[in-house]
Simulated scan of single mutants.
Amino acid sequence: MNPLYVSQKLFEHYEHIQEVKHYYGLLAIYALLLTAEEKQDPVLLEKCKSILSRFPDRIEHPRYNFPSYRIGGIPKAYALMRGYMPEAENQVRQYAEEMMTAPRDRNGIMSYRHEPDKEMIWIDVAMAVTPYLLFAGLALDEPRYIDEAAKQTFLMYEEFLDADNGLLHQSKNWAGPGKYSEDHWSRGNGWGYLPLAELVQHLPTNSAHRPTAEKYFRQLSEALLPYQSKRGFWRQEIPFEYSYEETSGTGLILYGIGIGMRTGLLDRETYSPAFQRGIEGLNRLSINPDFSTERSCPGCLCPGEGEERGTIKAYVTLMLPYRDEHHSFGPLMFSMVEAYRNGIYDLNRDF
């Protein structure tokens, strides 16, 4: 089965069961755009543009941490950058400017907008901010957007890095003033890895940010690689061997590894076996014949209560996966696109 076909069918299943919006839905729309590009499918591309044209006026919006979600966020900025939706220029610029004024902690990291005095920061923000500002900056020739895109991911990588194992924690100040979450959460590391992957893929070759982006991308890649399970997954708590194998983080990590191999930043001989094992595992264990999904962690921001908030125990025991969890679709689609880009054209063959 062709991985691009799988990616498209995953989206079709997703839009059948719920309205595709919010950040996890926007990531799936972005992945659908990438799918359309790889397929060179003008009909699918028109579908993507039609979906994005519904933002903001024909969508019922929940409360957002980042208002750019209202206009279609990352895929809208990407569609502008690629020349698919020139009419989105004013929207993308307006919300890029809004993002540039978002609350920040004392170190300059974008923080929880609804309680800015508490300086609550979390790695998920790197995913929300960096690709949007990167694509907006490239589309609109605004270097300060690109500068801020790189700055936010670099600052968060440095803030959340566990020097003992090279992995990332998720949050600070959510469990109490000055406290970091204890985790090395699968999707949290994916949230930190994806923006680094977009930076190394799309930054101009002469960008002053490229050396740091490549350095941090390689470092996180090297830290993640030893923790892959025999079945190809990264676990909910990555270093804990008794934690469950988790879909969304695995999909994001494979997306980054695929980009790293294609750009020559990651040695193919070293990373290709892990990449192939991961794609096989996702196809076999995370995607059902009807394109429903399994093994994805639900929404997870410093879980737990009291003294257990943000502990490894809370991440592993409270946040249990279920079928068709809405964070699963985008990462699975990303991994399928990268499988195709890296020469895997038939998921049913032996890897």
Rank of each mutant, 00 (worst) to 15 (best):
Y5V: 15
E12Y: 04
E15P: 06
E19P: 07
V20A: 01
H22D: 15
Y23S: 03
Y24S: 14
Y24P: 09
A28Y: 01
L32K: 00
T35F: 12
E38L: 15
K39H: 11
Q40A: 14
Q40P: 05
D41N: 15
D41F: 13
K49T: 11
I51G: 01
D57A: 13
I59W: 08
P62W: 05
R63T: 15
N65D: 15
P67L: 10
R70C: 13
I74M: 08
P75G: 03
A77E: 06
L80G: 00
M81D: 09
E87A: 15
N90E: 15
N90C: 08
Y95H: 10
Y95E: 11
A96S: 15
T101I: 14
T101E: 12
N107Y: 10
M110G: 03
R113M: 12
D117V: 13
M120K: 14
I121L: 10
D124Q: 04
D124K: 02
D124C: 04
D124F: 07
T130M: 06
F135Q: 00
A136S: 12
G137F: 00
A139L: 11
D141V: 08
I146F: 10
D147T: 05
E148L: 05
A149R: 00
A150W: 07
E158G: 11
E159W: 07
L161S: 04
D164W: 14
K172G: 01
N173Y: 12
G178L: 09
Y180T: 02
E182L: 12
W185K: 06
R187N: 08
G188I: 10
G188M: 06
N189I: 10
N189R: 06
G190M: 06
W191N: 06
W191I: 13
Y193P: 07
L194T: 14
P195D: 07
V200R: 01
T212C: 06
Y216A: 10
Q219F: 07
E222Q: 12
L224R: 00
L224D: 00
Y227K: 01
W234E: 03
R235H: 06
E237M: 11
E246A: 01
T247E: 09
T247Q: 08
G249R: 00
L252A: 08
L252W: 13
I253D: 00
I257Q: 03
G258R: 00
G260D: 05
T263M: 14
G264Y: 11
D267Y: 07
D267F: 09
R268K: 15
T270C: 12
T270Q: 15
T270S: 12
Y271T: 04
P273G: 05
A274R: 02
Q276Y: 07
R284T: 02
R284W: 02
L285P: 02
L285E: 11
S286H: 06
I287A: 01
P289C: 05
P289H: 02
E294S: 15
R295E: 09
P298Q: 08
C300H: 08
L301P: 04
C302I: 09
E305N: 14
G306C: 13
E308K: 15
T311E: 11
Y315G: 04
L320Y: 12
P321Y: 09
D324R: 08
P331V: 10
L332A: 03
F334P: 07
V337A: 02
A339K: 01
A339S: 09
R341V: 13
N342R: 03
Y345C: 15
L347R: 00
F351Q: 06
F351S: 10
